[in-house]
C-alpha cells in the first residue's frame, strides 16, 4: 500500500514538483502515471523510492513512514521496491547476468541461489540467451528487459517503472508493458508506470492518474490518456 497525503515537493531552485498530492495505491494495483514532461510523474516515483525528500505532507510505503525514515533504514525500504530507471542505470562493464545479480548481492544472498535465480528471472523476461552479453551488445528492448529483470529478481512488493518504453518502437513497447502486466498478475507486484506513451495507456484500460504541473488532474480506473 502506498499513501500520499497532501504531499508537496519544492525543488531548491524554487520550482514546484508536486503540490498537495493525495493518492492511495493498494497492493497488487497496476497504475499508469501520465502527463507532460515536468508534470511530476518521475517525482512521485523518486519520492516513493526515497531518491528525493518531500517538502510537506506524509508518505507511507508499506510499513514505512517516509517522513520518519532514518537514512540508515532507506536501504531496507528500497529492498522492497524494484525500480526500472528511465536511463536504465546498468553497469556497462558487467554482463547481463552480473547486472541482474547485483540486486541479490546487495541483500547478501548466497552465490548458488543468485546463479539459479538470475537464470530464472532472465528466462522470465525472455533474455536468458543474452546472460553473458554486455549492455553495449544489446538492443534497446533487451536493455530494458535487463533493467526489469534486475528490478524484480529480489521479488519486491512494488515495481516502479520510469518511462520504460521511452526509447522503444511500438512493438517492443507493447512487449515491455505485457511483461510488466505479467509481473503484476503472476507475482502480485504493485506496478506503477510513469509514461507519456499514449497508445500504450489507451490500449491497456488500467488505472490512470493524470498529472499536470504537479497536481492530479484526474484519477480513473480503466482510464485513457486524458480523453476518457
Amino acid at each position: 500500500m502506498i499513501i500520499f497525503d497532501q504531499v508537496s515537493k519544492k525543488f531548491p531552485d524554487g520550482s514546484i514538483g508536486l503540490e498537495e498530492i493525495t493518492l492511495e495505491i493498494p497492493d497488487k494495483d497496476f497504475v499508469f502515471l501520465i502527463g507532460k514532461s515536468g508534470a511530476g510523474k518521475s517525482t512521485i516515483l523518486k519520492l516513493i523510492n526515497k531518491e528525493l525528500n518531500f517538502s510537506s505532507g506524509e508518505i507511507k510505503v508499506n510499513n514505512f513512514n517516509l517522513s520518519k525514515l532514518k537514512r540508515s533504514k532507506v536501504s531496507k525500504l528500497r529492498r522492497d521496491i524494484g525500480m526500472v530507471f528511465q536511463d536504465f542505470k546498468l553497469l556497462n562493464d558487467r554482463t547481463v547476468a552480473e547486472n541482474v545479480a547485483i540486486a541479490l548481492q546487495v541483500i547478501g544472498e548466497k552465490d548458488s541461489k543468485i546463479r539459479q535465480q538470475v537464470m530464472e528471472t532472465l528466462d522470465m523476461v525472455g533474455i536468458a540467451d543474452k546472460a553473458k552479453h554486455f549492455p553495449s551488445q544489446l538492443s534497446g528492448g533487451e536493455v530494458q528487459r535487463t533493467s526489469i529483470a534486475r528490478a524484480i529478481i529480489a521479488k519486491p512488493s512494488i515495481l516502479l517503472a520510469d518511462e520504460p518504453t521511452g526509447d522503444l518502437d511500438p512493438g517492443n513497447s507493447d512487449l515491455i508493458i505485457d511483461l510488466l502486466e505479467n509481473i503484476n498478475k503472476e507475482l502480485g507486484t504493485t506496478v506503477i508506470v510513469a509514461t507519456h506513451d499514449v497508445p500504450i495507456v489507451d490500449k491497456r484500460q488500467r488505472r490512470v492518474i493524470h498529472l499536470e504541473k504537479g497536481k492530479i488532474l484526474s484519477d480513473k480506473n480503466k482510464g485513457k490518456y486524458g480523453k476518457d
Binding site: K76, R78, K89, L91, I102, A103, V106, I107, G108, A154
Partner: peptide
C-alpha cells in the same frame, strides 16, 4: 561513483 549510486538505489546498505 555511478556503480555506488546504482547500488544505493537498489537497496545496498551503507556497510555493503
Amino acid at each position: 561513483r555511478e556503480e555506488i549510486k546504482i547500488m544505493r538505489l537498489i537497496g545496498a546498505s551503507n556497510w555493503y
